[in-house]
């Protein structure tokens, strides 16, 4: 086989038997993170002192812990307290938890940006603080968060390769398997790198497009 052929077969194998897991894990982790992020930010903005302190602590923990370590805790550690999860679910939960912390920050900074400009206006027409948030601030902040959230997805996608550590056969794991079978790492790694690059590049174009749209809609700074 010549090297182009090797690259192509590696690509095909990774796409057919690995990429779907990468996307599955990243997508579910992303939405888990989004839900968590929304909950965190709701509590931070609208909750009491103690509640937001707790959320802050959680965010500090989740932002400080290495993803591999969290995957180990969930996959190897939780069974000892009676919670056994398979590796794919462990990866989704682990990456989702971490992403929740980051997504709450993305959401919070856009909420602050919108609130700085619109809160007084919203209150001045007689809205309560609650309805000012729910009907004026949050809807705008979500839009403003979109580029950051798409970017966050690419980060999760790249991190999903760490699920290799608990044996999830995603794109990177598949590439390593090919490499181990062929005794040759260069082409499988190149193949999987190209796949990540293609997806990340497309998504960065999406981010640029959203920025443009947002600026047209008057959200730009």
């Amino acid at each position: 086989m010549n090297s182009i052929e090797q690259l192509l077969t590696a690509l095909i194998i990774i796409v057919r038997y690995g990429l779907s897991n990468s996307i599955l894990v990243s997508t579910l982790a992303f939405f888990l993170g989004l839900i968590l992020g929304l909950i965190f930010v709701f509590i931070e903005v609208l909750g009491g002192r103690l509640a937001s302190w707790t959320v802050n602590l959680l965010v500090v923990i989740l932002r400080g812990i290495p993803p591999v370590l969290l995957l180990f805790i969930i996959f190897y550690g939780l069974p000892s307290i009676g919670i056994s999860l398979n590796n794919v679910v462990s990866a989704i939960i682990g990456l989702g938890l971490i992403s929740g912390a980051y997504q709450s920050q993305i959401l919070r900074s856009s909420i602050q940006a919108v609130a700085a400009r619109q809160m007084e206006a919203a209150l001045s027409i007689g809205l309560s603080k609650w309805s000012a948030y729910t009907s004026v601030i949050f809807p705008q902040a979500l839009r403003l968060s979109l580029p950051g959230l798409v970017n966050e997805y690419t980060i999760i996608l790249k991190d999903s390769s760490l699920a290799y550590a608990i044996g999830v056969v995603e794109a990177f794991t598949q590439a390593v398997h090919i490499a181990q079978a062929r005794f040759e790492y260069f082409t499988p790694l190149l193949a999987v790198a190209l796949l990540y690059l293609a997806i990340c590049f497309s998504l960065s174009q999406v981010v640029n497009y959203i920025y443009l749209k947002l600026r047209v809609l008057g959200y730009g700074q």
């Binding site: 790249k158 991190d159 390769s161 760490l162 290799y164 990177f172 590439a175 390593v176 490499a179 790492y185 260069f186 790694l189 999987v192 790198a193 990540y196 690059l197 990340c200 590049f201 960065s204």
Partner: peptide
């Protein structure tokens, strides 16, 4: 920025 760090590490270490 478009590829995972672990892919980069494997490149350097194994390829």
């Amino acid at each position: 920025r478009g590829t995972p760090m672990i892919v980069q590490l494997f490149f350097i270490y194994y390829a």
